[in-house]
Write a protein that binds this DNA or RNA. Structure first.
Lengths: 232, 232
DNA sequence: ACCTGAACACCGTTCAAGT
DNA sequence: ACCTGAACACCGTTCAAGT
């Protein structure tokens, strides 16, 4: 008896992974458990283990699904546009799956899709004429920005919805204790003007930092940067 | 009967926090549980809850302990040295407590020590003559580098000890599939020459990226950067 | 004021068994 | 080949009780 409704079209790795992505999209990474995912698939927990080695492997697979959504830039563009386009595409993918940033941070095994993205980014620098040494350094400098995210300083990193704005009294107390944070928080470069409460890791901030780095990379490249001589 | 050995000098928040830091240093963040910490303190799990609201609050407190280890730079130095010194001090603190980076990333409430560090960094830019707007942007651009870490692309982010170097056959297969990663991985700017296996997020890479950013900040500041006019 | 004991509602994962 | 059931060794946290 396969159940009265006749669902459960048989499990496979892809169905498990996509169900996990959908569930994480819905309830967040903390609430994603093997048992809950199994329930969602109308199956006993242990059934998952035929398609995924353990929870770590599940998370690896989920990251691969999201990273696989990154679109390659148009072929033949300059290194700067290639890198920029790839990073901004990664960012769009990560914004679609808010949990993915955290999952990516905790991954220890580099899966195929992750390595593909890294290889393609390295390729953009190298074919743009960067030396291997400089490419190595700029890849490191890019760091997590390659995946379209940055560690946030102001906002709730787990923010699913808008955080409750602090009440005026708290705001005033904060401003007194942390005058410099208050000074910069109240610059309304952000669309909605409610900077402390929301909207700081927005597209403008991300692109500001990304372009700052790309400018730096371009400058080093143009100036013919050479690795420092080892002090023998 | 307080136990045959007569230990357990009575719990308090500080003892709980420092025991938690020591335990995480020893066994890692994943193995740190309320129950295990309680056992370490020779106390029943629920005893902890008198001194710490819940596990999240415990992690907040642990982060505060580590962030509190960051030393302020010598007073009166230029903004660049102030920021650089603070960041490198933060890095030293985080290297002493390898779990702290992950804990910091997952914190959602900004605790006092964290806000102090942010306020002091903002102060360095502002007293260096940066506008509030530019300070806002560069603080975002600095991001997690303010805490002395960057998301790593190559290495095991949870690496406690040195990872096992990949065997030659795997290396060759990797190099074929990911030629550009191989090309940049084999640049031996690193002290031990075993780049893929170890030693990538070393001090040199970190300072390269940090100085690249600081150079960018200095250039924008010197050029009198102004916020882009809103398109009204 | 501080700690304890027992219990609740969860986890990930093993093993041996079913079809 | 794929799924199940029961069990094991854990979690964080509640509640009511002890001293």
């Amino acid at each position: 008896m396969p159940g009265p409704t006749g669902r459960r079209p048989r499990l496979n790795r892809d169905r498990v992974l996509h169900a996990a992505v959908a569930l994480a999209d819905e309830v967040g990474l903390e609430a994603l458990s093997m048992r809950r995912l199994a329930a969602e698939l109308d199956v006993v927990p242990m059934a998952l283990y035929k398609h995924v080695a353990d929870k770590e492997a599940l998370l690896d697979g989920m990251v691969d699904v999201v990273v696989g959504e990154i679109e390659p830039p148009a072929p033949g563009v300059e290194w700067r546009d290639a890198v920029r386009g790839r990073v901004l595409s990664a960012r769009r993918a990560l914004l679609r799956h808010p949990w993915a940033r955290r999952a990516l941070e905790t991954r220890t095994t580099r899966t195929a899709a992750v390595l593909d993205q890294m290889d393609a980014t390295a390729a953009a620098f190298l074919t743009g004429g960067f030396s291997a040494e400089l490419t190595h350094h700029v890849m490191h400098a890019l760091g997590s920005r390659m995946w379209g995210f940055t560690q946030e300083l102001f906002d709730d990193p787990a923010a699913q919805g808008p955080a409750a704005p602090p009440d005026p009294a708290t705001m005033r107390a904060m401003a007194e204790r942390y005058p410099h944070i208050a000074a910069i928080a109240l610059t309304t470069t952000h669309e909605d003007g409610t900077v402390v409460g929301r909207g700081c890791d927005d597209q403008a901030e991300f692109e500001f930092a990304l372009d700052l780095m790309l400018d730096g990379f371009a400058r080093l490249h143009e100036q013919g940067w050479r690795p420092p001589q080892p002090a023998v």
